[in-house]
Amino acid sequence: MSVMDVRSRQVRVPRRFLPVAATFAVFVLTFGAGSLRYEGFASPQVLTNLFVDNAFLIVLAVGMTFVILTGGIDLSVGAVAALSTMIAAATLEAGWPPLVSVAAVLLTGTCLGLLMGLVIHHFEVQPFIVTLAGMFLARGLCFLISVESVSITDPAFRAAATGTLTPVEGVTLTYSVLIALAVVLVAAHVLHRTRFGRTVYAVGGSEASARLMGLPTGRVKVGVYAVSGFCSALGGLLFSLYMLSGYGLHAVGMELDVIAAVVVGGTLLSGGVGYVAGSVAGVLVLGTVQTLISFEGTLSSWWTRIVVGVLLLVFVVFQRAVVRRAR
């Protein structure tokens, strides 16, 4: 509750921030409920682990936020992430230096995103279809590289994966968390402090108007898919650090988790409204649910899906109510 109060007083237009505040509130509530119910849940490490276990998801959600803010959608993120794990694993196995391998992964992801953006913008094919094809393409490419899972044995990579930081006594972080947080900060800066970011919101609000105002709508519409492609590739790299392998069946269905996180985070699928911070909160809520279910122990894993579905429903109905009241 206190979260909401503080925000509505600070912020000039509270209604815009209401969904994000609600997501944070739900996060605090679910985490609080877990703390009351399970011993050891409320430890800083459990909180930190939410970031450690979901670093890649945060990065993917950031990219998806850009796309959804323009009113588009990107179904390819899970597949591109999987392709990234595969390229990383395969190139490392072939003896490429880790940095070159990382560059290759990021370049591939960005190019794929760019390509999809170009098709969407210049041929006016719906984003849903183009990114669906992109998803098929990326998954298919994984299996063209290798049908089997390829494990990563490169020492530098392993060191990056297993290396930890201890900023405070009793809390360990991985490098992935730092990367994810950096991505969030950069994304927030880009969205709110650059003309590119403003145009992203403008395109989502009214593309026709944005075009008449002389904004580079085409460049932005293509750009967000490139951003999403880059984030998918980076998320895939973090995932390969997490799994230490490349596999075509990694991250299956992850695009749904990412979209769910973004929607739960208060971003409207119709575009123009939403914040990166909200998407991070959305990821944290989904992560908490997963942690809760694993703490419960007796509940089977499929309950996660059901709870995520229910959460999605609750938030969508809530947003709908907010929008209706505003009109």
Partner: peptide, 17 residues
């Protein structure tokens, strides 16, 4: 032809901030 989701100031200066 403005963007309803942005603020008045943002709309006025969009593209030439």
């Amino acid at each position: 032809n403005l963007c309803p989701n942005l603020s008045v100031a943002e709309n006025i200066l969009l593209g030439r901030e």
